[in-house]
Each structure stands twice: as structure tokens, then as C-alpha cells.
């Protein structure tokens, strides 16, 4: 509906998703021709009930899951057609933040962040955890950026949930990405930690110019942080607009009957 409004803008699109569909072998349609784009510096939030296809969309963008048809363009280049090394290069440009953090638990926070830089490292030496001074320096700076410079040597599984998610963000930043995909980044966190994580993500978009595409199932959080809200219901994009433009009727279209509950 509001998609057409964005077409006229003269900003360069960082990420373009074109008619992306995913159909499971059993016939379930997870995504139906989803199209949208994201510009640098934009904090775009995808809302929708759990099971609506938000996660699948995110994972189809960086190809952790494969779409059935449609195309994903990053900085003008197709991601959907890539394989092996080219795909790895493309993934490097899209830092991915997971709901469950997915840190390597038995290594240090700093080594986890170094994982974000491995695409540019010699394969064998990095597998034996030999990292150059420069790489370690870059990783430390990324940890400092999320306020965890003092936790560098600590084992990842000894950190709190909120700290682990910030290490995960530092790992994404270490990739020197142009955008960040965050799949329910605060769903496993307490409200305090959630705020720190969301604040960090927003400042990455608004102050440092990363494009951030973030899945959330809570509308109130989306309302507080998003520049733009995309709504997904049953695999279809049913909402796309600037935050201020959205009324309760539009949000209801995403959530259906349970909208009022979700808003509370």
C-alpha cells in the first residue's frame, strides 16, 4: 500500500527484496512475493505474530534458508544467485544477530568477535585460533563499541544474556558490514537488557549509517525504535510505512483480532 510512496525517493537502496517467495516441499507458503527495500541509516522493523514468516524472510535474505523464487539485491548485486566464496563475501556485508545470540560458548568474548572477521583471514591459522595483532585490535574496538571492552577475555557462557547479545552485535560489526539483520534480538532478554540492545542497534543505524533490519513481535518496541515498520502476516507483506503514519487499524491488519492484546 505505501510501497509506491517509497519508489519516488531518490535515495540509493542498500537492500532490495524483490518478490521473494518460499514454499516448503509440503506446500506451505512461508513467504509470498515479499518486496521492499532498505536504505543506509534506516532502522526498519518487521512486525508480525510468531509464525508469520518474519524469521524465514530474514534467513532467506542472507541465505541461511533458501527462497523458492524472487531475488535479493545487496548494494545492487544479486545475493540469490551466488555460491561458495561469493556468497561468503555477501554474507560478510550482512551482520546477522540471532534471538539465541549463538555465541561459541566455550571461547572468549574476543574470540567470538574475531569470528566475524574470519572471512578475511587465512583459513588454517585462524582454525587454530592464531589471530594477528591488527585483527585482535579491530575485534577489541568492536567490543568497546558495545561497551564490553572489559569483558574481552571472559568466556562467552559466563556473560549475562544481554552481554552475550552485545558480543553478538560486536561480532556482526567486526564483519565491517553495510547492514545488520537482527532476528528477534531481544526476545530472550529481560526489559533492561532489551533496552540496551535496542538502543545499540538504533544508534548503529541512526548515528553510524548502517541499515538495520530487525524482527520484533512486540509492537510497542517497534513503535519506540523503528524509523519504518513493515508488517508481515501469513507470509505476506501487509504493511510498509514510516512510524508516524501508522494507525491502530493498520497494525490490526498485521495482528488480526489479537491486535489489542499485542498493543498492551
Amino acid at each position: 500500500m505505501l510501497k509506491s510512496e517509497r519508489k519516488g525517493e531518490s535515495v540509493t537502496e542498500l537492500l532490495e527484496v524483490q518478490k521473494l517467495s518460499k514454499v516448503y516441499p509440503n506446500g506451505t507458503r512461508a513467504l509470498s512475493e515479499v518486496s521492499f527495500s532498505v536504505t543506509p541509516g534506516e532502522f526498519a522493523v518487521i512486525v508480525g505474530r510468531s509464525g508469520a514468516g518474519k524469521s524465514t524472510l530474514m534467513r532467506c535474505i542472507n541465505r541461511l534458508a533458501e527462497s523458492t523464487s524472487g531475488e535479493v539485491l545487496l548494494e545492487g548485486g544479486s545475493v540469490t544467485g551466488l555460491s561458495n566464496n561469493d556468497l561468503r563475501r555477501a554474507r560478510k556485508k550482512m551482520g546477522f544477530v540471532f534471538q539465541q545470540f549463538n555465541l561459541v560458548k566455550r571461547i572468549s568474548a574476543l574470540q567470538n568477535v574475531l569470528c566475524g572477521r574470519m572471512v578475511d583471514m587465512p583459513v588454517l591459522t585462524s582454525c587454530f585460533r592464531r589471530f594477528s595483532k591488527q585483527e585482535r585490535q579491530v575485534a577489541l574496538e568492536c567490543l568497546e563499541r558495545v561497551g564490553l571492552g572489559d569483558k574481552a577475555a571472559q568466556r562467552a557462557d559466563t556473560l549475562s544474556g544481554g552481554q552475550q547479545q552485545r558480543v553478538a552485535i560486536a561480532r556482526a560489526l567486526a564483519q565491517r558490514p553495510s547492514m545488520i539483520l537482527a532476528d528477534e534480538p531481544v526476545a530472550s532478554l529481560d526489559p533492561e537488557s532489551a533496552k540496551v540492545v535496542m538502543d545499540t542497534l538504533r544508534s548503529l543505524a541512526n548515528e553510524e549509517g548502517y541499515a538495520v533490519l530487525c524482527n520484533l513481535h512486540q509492537v510497542n518496541l517497534a513503535d519506540r525504535y523503528a524509523d519504518r515498520i513493515l508488517g508481515i502476516r501469513e507470509g505476506e507483506l501487509v504493511l510498509d510505512g514510516k512510524k508516524g503514519d501508522l494507525g491502530s487499524a493498520e497494525i490490526e491488519s498485521v495482528y488480526g483480532a489479537e491486535a489489542q492484546e499485542a498493543l498492551r
Partner: peptide
């Protein structure tokens, strides 16, 4: 954890 490594663009051995 495997997916996290894949998402960074790491080599399969890494």
C-alpha cells in the same frame, strides 16, 4: 552456533 559462523561468511573449515 554453526549458523552464526555461516552468517559471518566463514569458510566451512572455520
Amino acid at each position: 552456533q554453526v549458523e552464526a559462523l555461516r552468517s559471518t561468511g566463514s569458510h566451512p573449515l572455520q
